[in-house]
Design a protein around this nucleic acid. Sequence first.
RNA 1: GGUCCGGUAGCUCAGUCGGUUAGAGCAGGGGACUCAUAAUCCCUUGGUCGGGGGUUCGAGUCCCUCCCGGACUACCA
Length: 685
Amino acid sequence: MPKRRLLVTSALPYVNGHIHLGYILETVQTDIWVRFQKLRGNECLYVCADDTHGTATMIRAQQEGRSEAELIADMQAAHVADLKDFDISFDNFGSTNDPENERFCQSMWHSIREAGLVKEKNVEQLFDPVVGTFLADRFVRGTCPKCNSADQPGDNCSKCGSTYGPADLLDPKSTLSGATPEVRSAKHLFIELEQLHEFLETWSQSGKHLQPEIANYLQGHFLGEPLRDWDISRPAPYFGFEIPDYPGNYWYVWFDAPIGYMASTQQWCDRTGGNFDDWWKSSDTEIHHFIGKDITYFHTLFWPGMLKTAGYSLPTKVHIHGFLTVDGEKMSKSKGTFVNARTYLNHLDPSYLRYFYAAKLNDRVDDLDLALDEFIAKVNTDLVGKVVNLASRTAKFVEQIGLSKEYPEDGGLFVHAAQLGDEIAEAYESCDYSRAMRLVLGLADRANPFVEENKPWELRKDPGNAARLQDVCTIALNLFRQIAIYLAPVLPRLAQQTGELLNDPITSWDQAQTPLVGTPVAKFKHMLKRIEEKDVHAMIEESKPAEVASAPGESITESVDRWNDSADALAAEPLAPECTFDDFTKVDLRVARVVEAEAIPEAKKLLKLKLSLGGGEYRQVFAGIKAAYEPEKLVGRLVVMVANLAPRQMSFGLSEGMVIASGPGGPDVFVLSPDDGAVPGQRVH
RNA sequence: GGUCCGGUAGCUCAGUCGGUUAGAGCAGGGGACUCAUAAUCCCUUGGUCGGGGGUUCGAGUCCCUCCCGGACUACCA
């Protein structure tokens, strides 16, 4: 087979957060594929970068009192270290804030301009005079211009389903300040994606570049109607690259992020003498993007559209994977299942997770569950019990004498494993790693009985059997080596150790075709420890928020803040503008008791609550806390509610207030409780 | 509610074009071994292939329908 040239990417991690096990899933998936391709002898370049731009970076830098550049540099160093320790083998890891990226943005922009895809639209945008900023759609609510339903979001009506702009709302309010926004004319630049409709439909529906369910999704959600113009500029203040022919405005972060793949490639070329056009403008080069399903449409509509317009190669394939869940649930900070890469590394070997992910990954978009008990059992049984055991039970018998000079008769075991190589390779190639792992483990299941039947431990008792002992161990170690070669993309450390043990480095897939003979065998060293349950538990405990993990009732008299809470929550949702005391008193917060609570089967997030304010005064409230609370456990407890909120008609009934809770949503919602002594009906001042 | 994907042993899954008696690993039960990280090996229990209907000589596989689960989307704000 002729050598292929492949450019491979993982999605760019956002600079504002640390690497977690969900992103590790993506990079492990990519890295396995890259290592596989290199092992097969293909020319393969793996690039990535930090995604740095956007409002969130700007706000966080302000809060931390330093420049964006400093923030980015720190986070990038942390990202690189985390990923390196998971054996992710990037050829280059850059940053979307690097000068190379700005140059590519400019040239890409130039092409898109020339193609006549850019138009300026005088957007009637709402401006919050209190905060002094333009309001994105989601920061405005008001009355639907079509059906007059109150309190509707700024982009479409939840009652009648009509879509409109925020400026069309009849009685708009800023959700930041509550002020009535002014309509101001703001100029934005848009890319008319609709001009590329036909191309995108052909490309996405060709059956070659996308998984079938993704092609289907695009057809159903986007391609069935005209594609909307893509708002590509953001007015200052914004952290990003300023648009050269449109001063005071910046490219939206999703414009420059994928271009980061190119900038990173350029950096690699500059460092190694490579030629950029060989990678991005050559029909001989395949381009493979690995991404999560959350960013599907950026990579399957906007990005191919940009590449096409600017005359670059189109992605050969966009490989899309699902999210990571832990023990069957969305990762949750409060449960300790939102685990940072570094926290994992503090307790466990990266090889465990690489193998487990490989054993579960296929070429579909399904979510992948990290069931912790399964994780422990699978790694210990498969890797330690079956694979590494082959070496550890035989290597010491040939430590002095090495492998036999000729490969002995083994009943066809080696040939069988050699022949299976193509099938395993096919599974890797198509990203069906779980199949590859099954096939490889099947080899270990044949090799262990061989050792059992030939009893090297008995052979060694009689010096007359020395030659036979050497032959048996030569066979077992060769079978082990084949497995190590086939697992090398997943377990580079095991491949390295195997090379050292048998004095022949593993560098090529084809090494599994020829038995190794006559080499010395090094003293056997442990290759992989068993996972201990306590280490997994320690990792989960370390991932829990400090206030949950520490014992209650400790002294709080110390003058210094010893809790050292993370800045993440504040950065995710910055402080609202100042309000007056009068503003505050408009909101009537009351202690209330939950007297009834039931889940609404048709709604995914809603519980229906009956709240008592005492004295027979009740309120019916719908609260989006289904994922976090069992209805039965709420009954009887005290909560804080907004008692004078305008009632809202919902599909399931009238909601007459709101239960106060914090947290980002989903399973991470935390309902507030008053301290002991509070009674229903009391106002919260 | 809409769209899509799935449901095979206690668990995780394989099952090709419709073709013999539906498989594997783990877990469970019994035995063996003692080289190996309490690892390994042999034997073994366990299934109305979600339910019902249809097509067919023949259905886990194809069609219809219902039930259940998940994802996306909407609602939640």
